[in-house]
């Protein structure tokens, strides 16, 4: 019987004999490995390129003190150009910070609503709408900042200029919120229903179940969503360029105009001679941005790992 049964079930290779399936498996493993490696090669390539372009500046005109501590970014000054990014860093940090204050409550709230409370058609409709929001190009957001938010802020707060941290922070927050909502909602949906059922069976209210069971279980995904939003805020260029006022300034209040690191590169790179100190200084900002993004992602990874362990 056993022999007959085995013949009926098709061909089975000897356990010491490699067949076509085994070789296909190895081939696929190598192909997947290659695609994985290529991502790393590309990242390293970009970093090397940016570093080489900025290298001349780093070795000749670069002064650590001036670069990080001087608020004067005057690369076109004919007598004595200065390259200080303190004001630019303050601009990027203040806009990103405000954007997160706007985006985190909005996106977590809507993610919890869509994932836990909305049902049926309402849920589908909201999801489509959120995805649509995420697809709006950043220049359109910048335009909204310029033409709608600007006069609105001037009217409401009685300030001379409406292109400032408040404007850019709100715009950037609204831009980041859809993606953060999407990711947070996925994280909440990934929590198995049996957790909810078990907690509800213990007599927990909807909100108690969400707060005590679902949110802790989705912690990693939610944190991932927030950090992606931070990264988005940091890297966003066009909307920030249009809505901040693009004025070099260490802000004293949310009504001050500022300038962001990314916007500086975008606005000035086309105007500089390739290889000039100004050009190289812009690439040095690029290196700095790259390093920050790297640190954010790395710490996100470490935090998530830490959560997993504990």
């Amino acid at each position: 019987m056993s022999q007959a049964a085995r013949q009926r079930s098709g061909n089975l290779p000897d356990i010491n004999q490699r067949n076509a399936d085994w070789y296909i498996d190895k081939l696929v493993q190598y192909l997947v490995f290659l695609s994985g490696i290529s991502a790393i090669v590309l990242i390293v390539g970009i970093f090397v390129f940016v570093t080489i372009e900025g290298l001349g500046f780093l070795f000749e005109d670069f002064s650590f003190r001036e670069f990080f501590l001087s608020p004067w970014w005057e690369p076109t000054d004919e007598d004595e150009p200065t390259y200080g990014i303190l004001a630019l860093m303050a601009g990027t940090a203040s806009v990103t910070g405000l954007a997160m204050l706007v985006a985190i409550p909005f996106s977590l709230g809507s993610a919890i609503y869509v994932a836990e409370f909305a049902s049926g058609k309402k849920r589908e409709f909201l999801k489509v709408l959120i995805e649509l929001l995420a697809a709006i190009p950043s220049v359109v957001w910048g335009f909204i900042g310029l033409s709608i938010m600007n006069p609105l802020i001037i009217d409401l707060f009685d300030v001379p200029v409406g292109l400032n941290i408040l404007n850019a922070g709100i715009i950037l927050g609204l831009m980041a919120a859809p993606i953060m909502t999407s990711i947070s909602e996925d994280a909440l949906k990934a929590v198995p229903d049996r957790y909810r059922e078990a907690a509800e069976a213990l007599g927990g209210t909807r909100w108690q179940v969400i707060y005590k069971t679902v949110l802790p279980a989705a912690k990693n995904g939610l944190l991932g969503g927030v950090l992606l939003g931070v990264g988005r805020g940091f890297g966003e260029t066009m909307a920030v360029l249009m809505a901040t006022g693009h004025a070099i300034n260490i802000p004293g209040s949310v009504f001050d105009s500022v300038r962001a690191l990314t916007a500086t590169i975008a606005a000035e790179l086309g105007e500089t001679a390739v290889g000039s100190p100004h050009y190289q200084a812009l690439f040095t900002i690029g290196i700095f941005l790259f390093s920050i993004t790297f640190v954010i992602n790395l710490s996100a990874d470490l935090i998530v790992r830490g959560i997993r362990k504990s």
Binding site: L12, P13, D14, I15, N16, Q17, R18, N19, D21, W22, D25
Partner: peptide
């Protein structure tokens, strides 16, 4: 064994 999948198959 050279083919672990064949082992698991058995």
């Amino acid at each position: 064994v050279r083919n672990v999948y064949a082992l698991r198959n058995r």
